[in-house]
């Protein structure tokens, strides 16, 4: 698992990236009540805004740490968006068939150190 500065996590297996937000991000946002999912089939660029998470208080964008095509969104979150709060690292948001990966992703240790600077 790797991490973006904008608090997404990404796991790449067999050229498919699974993307979610970090526990730090869900905690900052508070109760998440809606995930405005992207269309499957959409082509996205690195760091492009792909969807919005809506908490009780605010709207926050989620960026794609990879370039490629959105091939799946987590439809379970439609009924239970609070799973992003309760289990951020399992509540994935979308999957992308990867054409290119961001060169700026961090390891978990690097991300933890990065959080200390915020």
């Amino acid at each position: 698992m790797k991490f973006a500065k904008t608090h997404e996590w990404v796991k790449i297996e067999n050229n498919v990236a699974t993307v979610g937000i970090t526990d730090y991000a869900q905690n900052e946002m508070g109760d998440i009540v809606y995930v405005d999912m992207p269309e499957v089939g959409r082509v996205v660029a690195i760091d492009e805004e792909v969807l919005e998470l809506e908490s009780v208080k605010a709207v926050a964008p989620v960026n794609s740490p990879v370039a490629g095509t959105v091939i799946e969104v987590n439809e379970e979150l439609d009924k239970a968006p609070e799973m992003v709060n309760s289990d951020a690292y399992n509540a994935w948001l979308f999957k992308v068939e990867v054409t290119e990966e961001s060169g700026e992703l961090m390891s978990e240790e690097e991300y933890q150190n990065y959080l200390k600077t915020l």
Partner: peptide
Amino acid sequence: PVQYKNGIL
């Protein structure tokens, strides 16, 4: 405080 530990809901 906008919220405490258990959240707004």
